[in-house]
């Protein structure tokens, strides 16, 4: 389509009807508009600072947006990564646990370090030393070997015979 044809079409179909359209105002409409403008001017005169202040709707919108942003910030979590295989939790010290009665009560003087023990050959105990057994209790209780010298001393057995010696009375 040529530009002239296009312009004539627009002129006939669009511009001419718009030129003929005549928006009119009746007296009632004028009075209503005048009343609204007068009321707005009175409102401005009473509260001139209100014009600069944000409107209640806008203020409410701002407050709502701030609240949503705050809630989103509080509940937001970073996207989860694939969880690695579970590892055993490291041992924690007892002070992190709730206060309960400890099962293992440290002995008095634990703060002084490990108790000193004297040499096993010493028969004199140093001050603060624990008593130390040369043999364990179980070792001492278990008869590992037959101690035959006592029987020989008492004459229960004869060193020369496996038979039991009988005490005999002898005269000199």
């Amino acid at each position: 389509m040529k530009a002239a044809d296009r312009d004539s079409r627009i002129e006939n179909e669009l511009v001419a009807p718009l030129r003929e359209a005549r928006p009119t105002l009746d007296e009632l409409h004028r009075a209503r508009l005048a009343g609204a403008i007068e009321a707005a001017l009175d409102l401005e005169k009473q509260a001139p600072a209100r014009r600069r202040a944000p409107r209640p709707a806008a203020l409410g919108g701002l407050l709502a947006a701030a609240a949503i942003a705050l809630m989103t910030g509080l509940t937001w979590r970073p996207p989860r990564r694939p969880t690695p295989p579970a590892r055993p939790a490291p041992a924690t010290v007892a002070r992190d646990l709730p206060r309960t009665t400890p099962l293992l009560v440290p002995y008095p003087g634990a703060h002084q370090g490990a108790p000193k023990t004297g040499a096993s050959t010493s028969l004199v105990a140093l001050p603060g030393e624990r008593a130390r057994a040369a043999r364990s209790t179980m070792d001492r209780c278990r008869p590992t070997m037959f101690f035959s010298s006592a029987l020989r001393i008492t004459g229960t057995i004869s060193p020369f015979s496996s038979a039991t010696a009988m005490p005999t009375l002898t005269s000199r």
Partner: peptide, 8 residues
């Protein structure tokens, strides 16, 4: 009560 704008 607002004072109406005089129409005339």
């Amino acid at each position: 009560m607002t004072r109406p704008l005089p129409i005339q």
